[in-house]
Design a protein around this nucleic acid. Sequence first.
DNA 1: TTTT
DNA 2: TTTT
Lengths: 184, 184, 184, 184
Amino acid sequence: MASRGVNKVILVGNLGNDPEIRYMPSGGAVANITIATSESWRDKNTGEQREKTEWHRVALFGKLAEVAGEYLRKGSQVYIEGQLQTRKWQDQSGQDRYTTEVVVQGFNGVMQMLGGRQGGGQSAPMGGQQQQQGGWGQPQQPAAAPQQNFAPQQQQQQQAPQQQAAPQPQYNEPPMDFDDDIPF
Amino acid sequence: MASRGVNKVILVGNLGNDPEIRYMPSGGAVANITIATSESWRDKNTGEQREKTEWHRVALFGKLAEVAGEYLRKGSQVYIEGQLQTRKWQDQSGQDRYTTEVVVQGFNGVMQMLGGRQGGGQSAPMGGQQQQQGGWGQPQQPAAAPQQNFAPQQQQQQQAPQQQAAPQPQYNEPPMDFDDDIPF
Amino acid sequence: MASRGVNKVILVGNLGNDPEIRYMPSGGAVANITIATSESWRDKNTGEQREKTEWHRVALFGKLAEVAGEYLRKGSQVYIEGQLQTRKWQDQSGQDRYTTEVVVQGFNGVMQMLGGRQGGGQSAPMGGQQQQQGGWGQPQQPAAAPQQNFAPQQQQQQQAPQQQAAPQPQYNEPPMDFDDDIPF
Amino acid sequence: MASRGVNKVILVGNLGNDPEIRYMPSGGAVANITIATSESWRDKNTGEQREKTEWHRVALFGKLAEVAGEYLRKGSQVYIEGQLQTRKWQDQSGQDRYTTEVVVQGFNGVMQMLGGRQGGGQSAPMGGQQQQQGGWGQPQQPAAAPQQNFAPQQQQQQQAPQQQAAPQPQYNEPPMDFDDDIPF
DNA sequence: TTTT
DNA sequence: TTTT
């Protein structure tokens, strides 16, 4: 696998939701997460404090996807290193549409959980306990059932007509153009 | 301007076309370029060599936009450091659509021309001369007229109905959500 | 300030000690920290788990130095973006020696505290309280007196003859070759 | 191979000399190169243009070392992605000394030749031909004989007493602490 | 000297 | 939708 050029994305931010884990027909895991990064500044005109949050769609593959599914939760802080990838697909009216994601895969991909030791990060209801978010601790029960097959979820989503579904791509190496069927 | 999180993109690749330069009402320059990065690998099944090219939409602002307009041409090799930004807009049918770009702006943005000394990079017809691409040399006549006002080009594009036009955003700091009206 | 080439270091790790803060004659703050990054792997021969820690010497300048002095403590986790810089100096026997540091300065420098919300990070004794490390919280009393002048500390260190002292460099822009007199 | 933390260096610059290639007892190749990055700015006081060049010591291993030996020459422009590593060694008087290098190795290491298509990059005398530098083209005769064994060169360097020689380290995984015996 |  |  050679490459001409450099295509690298580095993100440090917090998850907006629990990871969504799926499994490809090959058995390989895929985790989709959204990461927020934000900037704040003082508006020159009004003088008031302003903030802008950028949301990034990130897809992790293989072992990193499994780790993400086990340890990351809504609010978790992560370091991500991946590459930009734009998928083209057609919506219901046949128009070309594009979705850009940060793909974290193979030897070039990095996912590091940050802010350890502060526990928690459980997103499922924790009766009676104070809910903690934003960190990571011991391995937990995955938020999504790990044995869940990929195809059924596919069908399930296609039954939701209000959501535009992109067709399922084929997977040749590099299988980075994996598709999760929900336009960002 | 503080920030919570890290949002960084690093690209090394070649321009797919001459830069498109525009000027905002404030007079600030904006350059839109597309950069190709590619990976090649041997297909496990067929055994044949395969290659995949990824195209990145990049928007440069201010001084870097001016430099890009002067020195970069189709085929030029560049190093880019910027941040990911996704703009939301509505197409003609009112549907939400998203465009993700690499924004190169301010103190965090970097644009470095690579492969100097080999001259050329002119994309306009060069009668009698051997056309060279991929490098940069002495300052040249901009490919796009630099004094061209922003608003007219805006109108011009809206007259091309086959191209979906996103509405013009307002510019408060950080004005990174500049829009070039051509969905990627 | 133009640049030919790219010189960038990105670190995520934990501080080995509290930051050391000093002030230049101009009044600008300088913070020296050491950051650990580590890798672990299974030894092919012995089959046992091994780990290697790399220590990085980091120098922050200006506002980021002040923030580091206020909020960072031994064990704190940080994201650092800076540039490599090697200083040459002569030891007591007149031999050339070199010290390489990651300089975090100006608009290209980034320092982000990670792992918020878990409190603490105080390194001074905390009688009766459970000591917390590795995070950051409310502004605290600086570990080092901020008004402490630079020159005296300079003298103080020169009185410690077992430590090789590099001579004080002059500061022209870019003043990145600041020297903290203790060979790493 | 897991890692706690991030340790990443990105360089774009030009080689100060031809690569020095050596071979470890295991047969693996090691290439040592020095890369220059420079910054220029206008001095506030004198108003004159100033420039500062930073030299980086880079060690490439394995396949990338072989590619470097074949294609890179003095003046070649490269993109480098590696990690910081500081080696400790004792000089002749028994004093601890440290050398920091950018190690490019394994799956995390990247070396991309830049500015292609402009040919040349040969540093050896080229009778009658116009010498070109800074690029890369077809495979060339290595500047250093590739079959040259590691140990002899070792001895040769130790015969140069004005150069401090660090002792040869042992190689367990990760063998990144390879040593080239010439303090930077 | 950190951290897990 | 996160975080401070």
